[in-house]
Design a protein around this nucleic acid. Structure first.
Lengths: 200, 200
DNA sequence: ACCTGAACACCGTTCAAGT
DNA sequence: ACCTGAACACCGTTCAAGT
C-alpha cells in the first residue's frame, strides 16, 4: 500500500494550513502526496467528505474532561483558530452534520439542546469572523490609515489600535458574547423553562 | 448603454434563486444577461464584490422602523431565508464588512455592540443551518427512513416528524435561542454592565 | 488495494480590440 | 460606455487501464 486515508487527510490539513481553504483543492492535495488527482478518489468519494474528515480532525479531543460549558466553548474556539480557515471548514461541515457531533451532545447535557445550539452557532460565527478579520489585517486590506470616520468593526467596541492586539480584543469580544448567552441560560433555567444543570 | 450594474446584480440574484450559490458563477450570470463573461468586469471588479452587492440587496429594507431588537432579528432572518442560499451570501459578505452594516448599527443602538454582534452571529448561523438542512431535506439526503437510532439534528429537540413541519420547528428553535440571548442581555444590563435601553 | 493517464465539463480573470 | 473573442491557469470528477 502507498497512501492511507489518514495520509490523505493529513496532507489536506497541511495544504489548508499553508495555503488556506481557497487553495485547498483536490489537485493540490494530490500534488502534496506526489500522486495524480484521480488517486484521491480511491480513498474518498468526493471533496465534501474530505472536508468533513478534516473538520473531525480539527476538533478532535476538544473539551475532553471539561464539565464547564464556558470552558468547553473556549476550548472549541481555540481548536478552530489553531489552523488556518479552521472555523470555516468546521462550520461548513457542521451545517450538514448538525447534531451528529459529540461536542454538541456534551454541551446539550450541560445546558440543554437550545443552549448548546446557541452557544455553538455563536462560537462558529465569531471564530469565522475572527479568522477572516485577522487574515484581512495581515494582508493589509483593512489597513485603514484614515482614523477619522472609520466604521466600528463587528467585535471591536473601540478603534482597532495596533494590529498586534486586535487578536486580544477579538478574544475579549468573544468572551463578552459568551457571557451574555450564559447569563441568558441562567435566567431561563431560573424560570424553570430549561433543564437546569451545570450552570452553578 | 446595454446593461447597468443594477442589471448585473439583478441577474445574479435570479441565477442564485434558480440554481443556488454553488452554480452562481460569473459565466452563468453573463449567460443570464446574454453577454460574454468578460463583459461583467466592466461593471464589477471581481466576483466577491458582486456577492457583496447581492448581499446588500437581500437585506435591503430589513427592520425599517422596527425599534424592538427581537422583531428586528426575526425580520432579518425572514429576509435571509427569502432567497435560496441567502444566509450564506449575506454571512460571507458580512464577515468582510462586519460593522459596516446599517442593521448592526441599529441593533447596537438598542442592545449595545456586544449584544448586536451576538444576535447577528446567532441569526446568520441559524439561518445558514436552516437553509442547508431544508435543502438537504428537499433532496432526500436526510430522508432517514430508519427511525431507530437517528442522531438528534441540531435545532430539533425531538424527531423531525413529517418533512413539512420541519420548517416550523426550525422557526421555533430560532426563537428559543433568540430568547436566551435577549434574557442574557436583560440580565447583563440589570447588572449595569451594558448601556440599558430597548430591553423593556 | 492503490495508482496512472487522459479526458469532460466546467471555473475566475485578463486583455486587446471592436462600436 | 459597454461589449466581443480569445486566451491563461486553473477546478472536481470519471473511467479505463495498469501493478
Amino acid at each position: 500500500m502507498r497512501n492511507s486515508l489518514a495520509d490523505v487527510v493529513a496532507a489536506a490539513l497541511r495544504v489548508l494550513g499553508e495555503h488556506g481553504l481557497e487553495f485547498c483543492s483536490m489537485r493540490r492535495v494530490a500534488a502534496e502526496l506526489g500522486v495524480q488527482p484521480s488517486a484521491l478518489y480511491h480513498h474518498v468519494p468526493d471533496k465534501q467528505t474530505l472536508l468533513a474528515l478534516m473538520a473531525d480532525e480539527i476538533v478532535r479531543g476538544v473539551g475532553i474532561g471539561i464539565g464547564d460549558p464556558r470552558r468547553l466553548c473556549v476550548d472549541l474556539r481555540r481548536a478552530l483558530l489553531a489552523v488556518r480557515d479552521g472555523a470555516d471548514v468546521v462550520a461548513t461541515a457542521a451545517a450538514f452534520r448538525l447534531g451528529a457531533s459529540e461536542i454538541e451532545d456534551r454541551l446539550a447535557a450541560l445546558v440543554g439542546a437550545d443552549g448548546a445550539r446557541t452557544l455553538l452557532l455563536y462560537t462558529f460565527g465569531h471564530a469565522q469572523s475572527t479568522q477572516t478579520r485577522l487574515q484581512a489585517l495581515a494582508f493589509g486590506v483593512l489597513a485603514d490609515p484614515a482614523p477619522s470616520a472609520s466604521p466600528t468593526p463587528l467585535g471591536a467596541t473601540v478603534s482597532p489600535g495596533s494590529p498586534a492586539d486586535a487578536e486580544a480584543e477579538l478574544d475579549a469580544s468573544y468572551g463578552r458574547g459568551l457571557d451574555i448567552i450564559l447569563a441568558g441560560l441562567r435566567a431561563s433555567s431560573a424560570l424553570g423553562t430549561m433543564e437546569d444543570s451545570g450552570l452553578r
